[in-house]
Simulated scan of single mutants.
Amino acid sequence: MRPITMRGVLLLAGALLAWAPFPAQAQGLAPVFQRVNGSVVVVRAKGRDLTVQNGASVLVKFHEVGSGVLVSADGKVLTAAQVVAAESGADLALLQLARVPAGIKPAVLGDSARVQVGEQIFVVGAPYGIAHTLTVGYLSARHKPNTIYAETPLAEFLQTDAAINQGNSGGPMFNLQGEVIGIVSHIISKSGGFEGLGFVVSSNMARQLMLEKRPFWTGVTWFRISGELAEYLNLPQPFALAVEEVAKKSPAEAVGLLPSRVVAQLEGKHVPMGGDIVLAAMGIRLDNDASFDKIRERWSKLRSGDEMTFRVLRSGRVMELKGRVL
């Protein structure tokens, strides 16, 4: 089986308006869905239509972040948005909308620690582009960070059997009180389609990583290189970061980082090739994930006008790159 990341958007942030929850048994699922469906909008990024909840800010899937991000509440009027923070380790990014579309009902970001395995939940998304689709299931399990998907080691995952397909990623998972308790991330499947193993980033982890810490956005999708893979690529050190994607109008683009051009399969992994491989940043050599955490901490303190530095391996040559944060 393999993990399949369902490209999409994640969740809302911003000023969240709470309401008194009603017992789900008394009102049934239909009224709860009708109440929260007004919080689901469409985000267009890289030409894809993606569903999210909405507020003054929007948390989106990290891989879809770039320039030309637009948000629509009714499928017609588009609102521009810009990235203000991102966390590749959980595949999350935070967008700030130029304005809040009319008629939007901000959703409640619930406490995912309170939901129990065996409780009924539901997901609202756009499987195969069919927007505002409801699927229902149960919370199947809870997984600590760095135990399920190596590409997102910071994410705490909630597992569900609610149907998740291409286009669901980024859609909210709700409890029966209509509170957001998770953000659809990926599935594990042999066939490529849904087989009952869906995973969502918990709302508490999204709140902690995006709203409380507010990480710095470089505009890069990183791919970790270590162990035998580093040896196969003849790297001068045992750990480095390959630049997979660089968003337009991002700090990384301003510095001059080059993204990969092709993807090769090595050791069962899809490895981005042909772009820069970062050996050090902000004066800190990359030796392991701990050193990357130190670099990210430095980035979190950057302000407009501060200098960013990288040492990269490009076409067999080690180069130093410098630039200013805009």
Rank of each mutant, 00 (worst) to 15 (best):
E156G: 08
G192N: 06
E87C: 15
F22R: 15
T5F: 15
A24R: 09
Q208G: 00
T309W: 09
Q120F: 08
V115P: 00
H143C: 05
Y128A: 10
K213D: 06
S169R: 02
A162M: 07
R296N: 15
F239D: 10
F157T: 01
F194T: 06
D289A: 13
G182F: 10
S189N: 10
L92V: 04
A113W: 09
W217R: 06
K294W: 03
K105W: 05
G8T: 03
L12Q: 09
H63Q: 11
N37S: 09
E228G: 02
D289E: 14
G283F: 11
H143V: 13
G171D: 07
V124E: 01
S260I: 00
Q166G: 02
G103R: 05
A163D: 07
S140T: 14
L12S: 04
V69H: 03
Q237E: 06
A18S: 09
A90I: 00
V123Y: 07
A163F: 03
A240P: 08
V77E: 13
V255E: 08
V184I: 14
K322N: 07
V84A: 00
K190T: 07
I277E: 09
M273Y: 00
L302P: 12
G193A: 15
D287I: 05
G182M: 12
Y232P: 00
Y149A: 12
N288C: 06
K105R: 14
T135R: 08
T5K: 09
R314A: 01
A126M: 03
Q25L: 10
G55K: 13
I187R: 12
S112F: 12
R35F: 03
V41F: 13
D287N: 13
F174Q: 06
Q27N: 06
E253W: 14
R207H: 07
L321C: 04
V220K: 09
A230C: 05
P215K: 09
D293M: 02
T152Q: 06
V200G: 00
L321R: 12
V263R: 13
E156M: 11
E297N: 07
E87R: 14
G219L: 10
P251G: 11
I188P: 00
V108R: 08
V52D: 07
I187C: 07
T218S: 13
K190S: 15
A86G: 15
L321D: 12
G256Q: 12
R285H: 05
Y138M: 14
V71K: 05
Q96G: 09
L78E: 15
M282A: 11
G103Q: 09
E320M: 10
S185I: 01
D306C: 04
